[in-house]
Amino acid sequence: MPLLPPWFHVRLTFGDGAVVDARAVVSEGRITIGDLSAGPPAPPDGHTAPADFAGPARHRARPSWPRGREGRRLVAEAYRAAQSEGRDPVLAVMRETGRSRRRSLRLVAAARDAGLLPPRHNRH
């Protein structure tokens, strides 16, 4: 049975109190990391860290978007700018607002209803 190289415990401690622990082995001139874990920075003023520090986020961050007339005006501007540059206007609204395609289409429809964009189809 071959002799396994020894594992080493490595700890990196940062100025804010955050730590990274790793188990590593050096074999044939290469470093291999076995386990890796990280801890939160130390809380300020000696308070305890919140329990949900590592909990999954419930909402994705997206830019705040004004409601009402101002929001419809900004949607119309983004839509027309993308259209004039030959880009996908709905995708431009999605990027600008941080909303899904369905929600962006609703915002575009609201801008059309407000008269800020021309009708989608010319009806005779």
Score class of each variant (00 low, 15 high):
109 A>H: 11
53 F>N: 03
76 A>R: 00
98 G>M: 00
96 E>V: 07
95 R>Y: 13
49 A>T: 09
113 D>V: 03
2 P>D: 11
17 G>H: 08
71 G>L: 02
7 W>Q: 13
110 A>G: 13
50 P>M: 01
51 A>K: 09
21 D>S: 06
84 S>T: 03
85 E>D: 14
10 V>T: 00
38 A>Y: 07
26 V>C: 11
5 P>H: 12
45 D>P: 11
51 A>E: 13
7 W>I: 09
112 R>V: 04
50 P>L: 01
26 V>T: 11
110 A>F: 05
59 H>R: 10
109 A>M: 06
44 P>W: 10
40 P>V: 03
5 P>F: 13
107 L>H: 09
119 P>C: 07
38 A>Q: 10
50 P>Q: 02
70 E>Y: 05
102 R>A: 12
14 F>G: 10
30 R>F: 02
67 R>N: 14
9 H>K: 08
99 R>S: 09
100 S>G: 05
107 L>V: 04
69 R>G: 09
89 P>D: 01
35 D>T: 05
74 L>Q: 15
27 S>Q: 14
81 A>K: 02
25 V>N: 00
61 A>M: 12
95 R>Q: 14
58 R>C: 13
4 L>K: 02
93 V>N: 01
106 R>F: 05
51 A>L: 10
26 V>Y: 05
113 D>I: 02
30 R>E: 10
124 H>L: 14
